[in-house]
Simulated assay, not measured.
Amino acid sequence: MTVPKTSVLVLNCSEPEPLARFYAQLLGATAGPATDDGELFLVTGRTGVVLGIRRDPQRPTPSWPLPEDSQQVHLRILVAADALDEAEREAVALGARPVAAEEDGTRLDNRTTLRRYSDPAGHSFVLAAVREDPARLSRT
């Protein structure tokens, strides 16, 4: 029998608690410490743990989209197409910083379907419009 387990993307930053609160508010989730020492915070939503935020005081702030740095990883937050403008207002009000659209190698970033940001600690994420209700997608 397989031991029950799950996986989660973990972002490193110098101050994990405020960043966990940022993502919890942005995603309509909750955030709390996963360890007694406060080194790891988990953001938990309707579908379970959606993101981890880990303390790493030596972690430099990401500098993407500078040409010498690669994006490496980003969060793609799915949003109903008709709610994209509202989701953008929420993200910016919580402290997200818009990142200029750039050629991604396949097509020009289209603001009607994809919007790029940096979170308060500098990690990149996008709000991406989808045809189906994102809540319905998370149940499948």
Rank of each mutant, 00 (worst) to 15 (best):
V99C: 01
L127R: 04
A34R: 04
T2F: 15
Q71I: 14
E132G: 01
E102L: 09
C13Q: 05
V43L: 03
A29E: 05
R59V: 12
T35S: 13
E90V: 15
V126G: 08
A121G: 05
H123K: 06
R116N: 10
I77D: 01
T47E: 10
G45F: 03
P98T: 04
A100L: 09
T61S: 10
R76G: 13
E15Y: 08
E68Q: 11
I77H: 00
R136W: 02
Q25N: 07
L114C: 05
R136T: 12
Y117M: 02
A29Q: 05
R59H: 10
G95I: 04
S138P: 00
S14T: 12
D104C: 06
T35I: 11
T112L: 14
D119K: 03
T35M: 15
L19A: 02
A24W: 00
A135C: 01
P60T: 10
M1T: 15
H123P: 00
R115D: 11
L26S: 03
S70N: 10
F125H: 06
H123F: 08
R136A: 12
P65K: 09
D56G: 04
V50S: 07
G52L: 03
D69G: 00
S118D: 04
Q72E: 13
R89S: 10
A100H: 05
V43P: 01
P134T: 02
F22P: 06
D119Y: 02
N12S: 15
R76N: 14
P16S: 07
A24R: 01
I77W: 04
T61V: 14
T6V: 09
V126R: 10
E15F: 06
D36V: 11
S70C: 07
T106Y: 10
L78H: 06
D37G: 09
T6A: 13
L66T: 15
L75R: 01
A83M: 10
V49A: 12
P67C: 08
D37F: 12
A87H: 06
R54N: 08
W64S: 11
R115E: 12
A91P: 07
S124C: 14
V99S: 01
E88R: 13
W64F: 15
D36M: 13
Q71P: 02
P33G: 08
G122P: 04
L75T: 02
T2D: 15
L137T: 00
E90Y: 08
V126I: 13
P65L: 12
G38N: 09
Q72Y: 08
T44G: 02
A34S: 13
E15D: 14
Q25P: 00
V79S: 01
E103F: 15
V49K: 02
R97H: 06
L114M: 10
E15S: 10
E17G: 02
D56C: 09
R111E: 14
A101N: 13
L40C: 06
A24I: 04
V8L: 10
V73P: 00
F125K: 06
A93L: 02
A34M: 12
G95W: 04
V130K: 05
V99D: 02
S138G: 09
A129Y: 13
R107Y: 01
L19V: 07
V49Y: 04
A31S: 13
E39Y: 08
V126F: 14
V8D: 05
T30C: 04
L19D: 05
V49T: 11
I53Y: 03
C13R: 01
P57C: 07
R89L: 14
S7Y: 14
L9S: 14
Y117E: 03
R21F: 04
A91R: 00
S14G: 12
A80L: 08
L42H: 03
